[in-house]
Design a protein around this nucleic acid. Structure first.
Lengths: 205, 205
DNA sequence: TGTACATCAGTGAACGCGCGTTCACTGATGTAC
DNA sequence: TGTACATCAGTGAACGCGCGTTCACTGATGTAC
């Protein structure tokens, strides 16, 4: 906990952290303002000094998630180095790592029902994250002969959908489903087959 | 509404239907026992004549969903006729149709947090549905040379993840995200590329 | 056919609960002199 | 350095709310004679 300023010192951050912890433990439903306040060692009313209300708190958690997500993806992509293909695969792995390491953020972003357009900060952060994926797809698709090249937006949507599906179905301990394979392997092999289908990886290996 | 038996006639069914409607409209969170009862024209207490409680109601909605899901997939698969490939692709389309036509069921099954192992009826219904997907993958993978054939369970997990991802991210009006393409096209093209990667579709088209 | 009875689906009132939010307040802190 | 003051983060009590669930009950229905 950083320096104590007024009374708490950093209540805003403490509340978001508590929110993330609760969302991770109990899902976006289980989260309550009262409990977040309790976790931060503060009266529920204090929350309203920093947030407009419950939804606003979740939205802030999601926003921070998108910022972090974008950073992680961007770092993994590494400007397409050493090769477009390697950078692309690293980005896919980073997606899964984020979902694993920041489940609270991931849930707030994708399962809380918060609209991305709730406020412009949120929308901007989300756009940036999606932009990284699209740029990675765009760069990689330059290696496909133009006449059989799918639109980059479609390419990137496929990868995003596959990644998200793997997270939701197999990476969470979710609804009694036990994963037949480690999620990482599932995603990596899936992306591999997909890229082979695009002719980006030689058919024999 | 079918024949009136005792007082209501078919309260159990009416409650499940109301539950599905509410889940579809407000998500698994928004659903309440009281409102389902109200929708069915009955006192909240009446619910407890037919279900053990709130979770039990959701579980029944999910169970019915899995039964329907399995039927639809099985019908689409059509015993692998006319060809394993065509049957497989029809199954993928059926997946999306189900998610579109029965959003209440889909949400109860995959987003409500209900464990598949909550009771044996639910577990059995879910197993049957997943079995159809696995069998379709198994049959299709017979056309791949054994040495480059992925395990059928992995194959089917890839397709399931891609389908689920497309539904969650692009088929719902979800969180302000507007789909760049119709979900059907997205799934069909994604599966197409994936199957090409497996050598099940000729690379040129 | 008519009557007496058993069944049990649905009632209505009540419960305790924790929620999100509001309000006038208090008291620790930073600042000006 | 010491005092007076303004600020405003957090308090504590209260609100209205709708929830899930329970309970003794009631009254429509099917059945037995």
């Amino acid at each position: 906990m950083p320096k104590r300023g007024y009374h708490h010192g950093d209540l805003r951050r403490a509340l978001v952290d508590a929110t993330l912890r609760l969302i991770e433990q109990k899902g976006p439903t289980g989260f309550t303002v009262s409990e977040a306040a309790r976790d931060a060692g503060v009266t529920p009313a204090a929350v309203y000094r920093h947030f407009q209300g419950r939804e606003d708190l979740i939205a802030e958690a999601a926003r921070q998630g998108y910022v972090r997500f974008a950073n992680i993806l961007e770092q993994a992509y590494n400007d397409g180095q050493p090769t477009a293909l390697a950078a692309f695969e690293a980005t896919g792995r980073a997606y899964l790592e984020f979902a694993r390491d920041c489940p609270g953020h991931y849930i707030a972003m994708f399962e809380s029902g918060i609209s991305i357009n709730r406020n412009s900060d949120l929308a901007h952060a989300a756009q940036r994250a999606m932009g990284v994926l699209e740029r990675a797809a765009e760069a990689l698709s330059q290696h496909i002969p133009p006449h059989k090249r799918p639109p980059a937006a479609m390419f990137s949507a496929h990868i995003w959908a596959l990644s998200h599906g793997v997270v939701e179905l197999f990476a969470r301990g979710s609804p009694g489903t036990k994963s037949p394979y480690p999620p990482e392997d599932l995603l990596e092999s899936g992306i591999g087959i997909y890229l082979r289908g695009l002719g980006l990886i030689p058919p024999d290996e």
